[in-house]
Design a protein around this nucleic acid. Sequence first.
RNA 1: GCGCGCUUAGCUCAGCGGUAGAGCAUCAGUAUCACACACUGGGGGUCGCAGGUUCAAAUCCUGCAGCGCGCACCA
Length: 912
Amino acid sequence: MSEIPKAYEPSQVEEKWYKYWLEKKFFSANPDSPKPSYSIVIPPPNVTGVLTLGHVLNNTIQDILARWARMRGFEVLWLPGTDHAGIATQTVVEKTLRKQGVMKHRDELGREKFLKKVWEWKEKHGGIIITQLKKLGCSCDWDRERFTMDAHYSFCVQKVFVELYRKGLIYRGKRMVNWDPTARTALSDEEVIMKQVNGHLWYIKYPLIKPDGTVAQDEYVLVATTRPETMLGDEAVAVNPKDTRYAKLIGRKVLLPLKNKPIPIIADELVDPEFGTGCVKVTPAHDPADYEMALRHNLPFTIVIAPDGTMTADAGEDYEGLDRMEAREAVIEDLKEQGYLLKVEDYTHNVGFSERSNVPIEPYLSEQWFLKYPAVEQALCAVEEGRIKFYPERWVKTYTHWMRNLKDWCISRQLWWGHRIPVWYRKKNSSGSQAEARRPDTGCGEDQTIDKDIWVDVTPPPDPENWEQDPDVLDTWFSSWLWPFATMGWPEQTPTLKKFYPTTDLVTGPDIIFFWVARMIMAGYEFMGEKPFHNVYFTGIIRDKLGRKMSKSLGNSPDPLELISKYGADALRFGIMRSAPQGQDLLYDEQHVELGRNFCNKLWNACRFRQMQGGAFEGEIEPSLLSNDDKWILLRLDRAIREVTEALETYHFNEATQVLYRFFWSEYCDWYIEASKAVLQGNNEARKANTLAVIDFVLSNTLRLFHPFLPFITEELWQGMGFNNDLPQMQGGSTIMYAHWPKPFDDDFKEFYGLDESDEQLAEARYELVRQGRNLRREYNIPTNKKVKFYFKPSEEKYSLEPEVMRVLLNADEFIIDRNYQPQKGTPSAHSALGELYMPLVGLIDVQAEKARLEKELQKAKQELERAQQKLSNQGFLQNAPKSEVEKVKYRLNESEEKVKKLTAALSALGI
RNA sequence: GCGCGCUUAGCUCAGCGGUAGAGCAUCAGUAUCACACACUGGGGGUCGCAGGUUCAAAUCCUGCAGCGCGCACCA
């Protein structure tokens, strides 16, 4: 007898096998393998990151796909790594350095020292998430782990920048950008999150200036604004040219309150006469729309808000140095005092917030680098025409909509942590011609103005003392978009790149469809001339029970590692997968994980049960000895194999787990194992051995079906049960990881073992009878542990009921088949198409109770009969419905007819 | 404003053209020998509303309502 513990204890098991897999290099991808390739690149988590449930969902899916592919005979590369995550990382490190008292602002340290600190920090804490992914069981090829700031990767980023620059797709310009005043950097449009804010609409009077230059005392235009502080930078008031109310004012001037500065009234189409007063204040330097207008009307750009969000000297000495929010209060106060504020209304509107700092974005005029996206048309068509497939498909629309409305991408960031822009500017007073001689040729079609004072190349200029490098770094996503090939050795045509690019599947969240997915597709076509992946699977977003996003500040984000130590990694994986419908958000509840734990335990004990039976493992199945129950479970297994495989093929992971759950728990454990006990406890040795062979066959297949979902426990059981004996030895060790994926039974197999649909029908009818018998016990309050006798009067003799099995399933003393059984009047009975079941009770006959019971049953049977009759009397149904459907209804009709007949007879036998 | 998604048992969700399903919760029973992280039985739903297509609709189509998300320069 083995000493397997009663309950599954995951912790040591998981550690043991993960170590084993690593030692044996089971995760390594071999580019020279003759097998077909299957590859995934991990969406690189931030180096600063710790594992969240989102990662669990995402990486479990990838692991399932990778493990499944290995079992199907693919050469699998799952390439892992981390992202330097510019702003996120820099912010985190800045915060800790401030906390440690090392600095207040990074300027105190200077660029070099600060970067050294970040690298130190990265070396110390950067790997956390990688070890956490290992705990989850991820089968990544860790020898190929990459980081977006590896030397080679950085080279790729620079190379790409230079290439795009020479193509004329990258340019520098002074534009209105989204400015994060806390991080003090520009952001891309995608990094701005619009939020609805309850604010106010302030109505301000701008007095008219008379033609003679004096200020009109009671004539004014009324302007409505949500940002009164920006008025300090106003350069005009705009009205719609078609707005008759103001037509005669166009060209006149108003006095800008507080600053006492005359500004013109201009006409611009952009103004909506319906909104507010129809007059808009124009702040060229602090509003994107106003910026556009200012360009059209040649207005000056007065900057009143500095990059750090405080007011500049141009705002006026009363306001200089105030934070923009403080300035707002002050301006309102002053306007009120001086009688310019007419009224205030409550007003909800959308305000852009920085995704990172969560502070309102400031539109800010500055010199930045921009990219015109390359390979747009190709990238768009590839998805639209299905060369790249999205799952679920609906994201295609989101993608194409974005792709058709692309705006140039602001790629420069005023940060230090990141890839520094490979551009040098000639120092003012230097004059070297030697650099000019080597200056890269822009080559490509666009007539980019050649500027000999700019050096753009992967290598710095040869006379660096005369040049100054651009201080900015590139947006993190400008490196991430190269991930599928920069990680594989590009631009060299490495064996890895040749074997594994394009990758097979990408698994990611829909929230980064623009940030990452779309850009990777464009980069793939631009630099590889080929798509980066065939399929993209978009996961849902994990929310808490109340539907809120997981977040640190809400404290509703459970630590997956705690869950793993409490329930086991397999349990966490299974629980999450079981509740993650395709592409739909999922509400997390710890109960899901508990369910996973329970399931693992069930699997554990089912195998424990098998081991306790002893006997050789994986004996041959002898077809002639198969019982009805054996055939039934084999057919169910076949069905489970088909359904799980199909679910995986279509990325329906929750369906796959649900099929497995149903098959293993309800069908195998609840019915088959229980039925098999009849044989195993008997003394027919041949049948016993055959039952064990069936059990082993089913378990061996089941463990394999489960392996991608539950890698640890399946390996433990696979090895423990000795199923590994006939497997090829992989790198000196055996493993379920490379056991072949179960195939559905073919016709030869079914014929050989005599498996037929009729077996299923019989088994199900028998189980239905058992259910009825158990119900009788319950109705008559016979405790489940009390033995009773059952008599059965079969309607025909031609089927084998397996009475011993029935006895065990009913937990009965005896199950007696007797065609001539004469029950005492009022004996509890159940009636099915197979026959009548009686449960004689000593001294406890209640005729009235039995009558009531039977009447209820009869009612049900009659209803069913009626429904079937109705269907079959419908000409349309008979003519149009498929034959199999009609057959099914006919079968049902027969069954219920039989039942009605029997119940009626039983009732009349009661004689009341 | 445009686009997308959701609405099924008390809760969380599957099902997406052929008699309404699961888990949890609930009620009743069970220390039974693989598992109390378990077993057995029960109760509970006119599948958001209104039309239409079909022999047949939770499932397909149209409209409406409620909730959520994304995109959009209305100050």
